[in-house]
Amino acid sequence: MSFVLGTSLLAVVTALACALPGAFVVLRKNSMLVEGVAHAVLPGIVVGYALTHDLNSPWLIIGAALAGLLVVLGNEWLIRTGLITGDAPQGLVFPALFAAGVIFITLDFSHVHLHTEVVLIGDLNLAAFHHLMVSGVSIGPRYLYVMLAVLAVNVAFIAVFYPKLKVTTFDNQFATVLGMRTGLLNTVFMFLVSVTIVTAFHAAGAILVISLIVVPAATAHLISHRLSVMLALTALFAILGAVGGFWIAYALNAATSASMAVFYGLVFIAVALIDRLATRVRRHRRSRVCQPAAGR
């Protein structure tokens, strides 16, 4: 497989793996919490690398995902104490964890050579560098298969728990009344999001991974009224944004994740404007239809 094809495929698969759980993140109003999770996995990745010396090791992925989960649990604990107001609990835990991760890196604690830019926005080309060889023929980047596995896990989770996710997302109290263990489901879901963030970290870094998770789902949310439609549109926007962002980055010689974030943003704005315009036209047409009726 050629390098460009392998890397663009990797961009698409990473975008899909992040965007599908993102639909629920957006609907549950957890976007900024997940932004915290994405920062907090850094110390987990550095410590995990010191122990495993393999950025794709499953132990590293699970360990770092648990570090990310600290933000979710810490947020819930701080809210329960009743001593912190507003949205501050979400902003208290993750900067400390992220700062610890940055200090670990500069102390060369684990000899993991992560440049600051890679930490923040990842490096898709570097992530796609090692190709998997089958009898001397490249079958694409090794990392592509890791991301494919995460995508498969996410799709399987959403498929199996679809009814439960749906009811807890739209009416959490009703779900509790039905006897569902909403807290447990939420923790498992956030753990899965955290795992996705850790694996996508090499491609998109601590900050821009949020773009991959949130923006396609938000764009789909603008124009859909059913969860199933929204999921399908989320996948569509994710693929569209990944391909578009990849080629812009290729043309500008810029970082792929940064171009993807900007391109996703532009698609969001375009869809929001078109949706507004369409609503206005529809309203205008309806009022024109109604007027003669009123005149009669």
Partner: peptide
């Protein structure tokens, strides 16, 4: 739009930061 404020903040943050990283490059 019907997008909630937390998602709106995440969108704005990533778009501006992404643009910043392109400028940095």
């Amino acid at each position: 739009t019907k997008i909630a404020i937390d998602t709106a903040m995440a969108i704005s943050l990533t778009v501006f930061f992404g643009a910043g990283m392109i400028l940095l490059r």
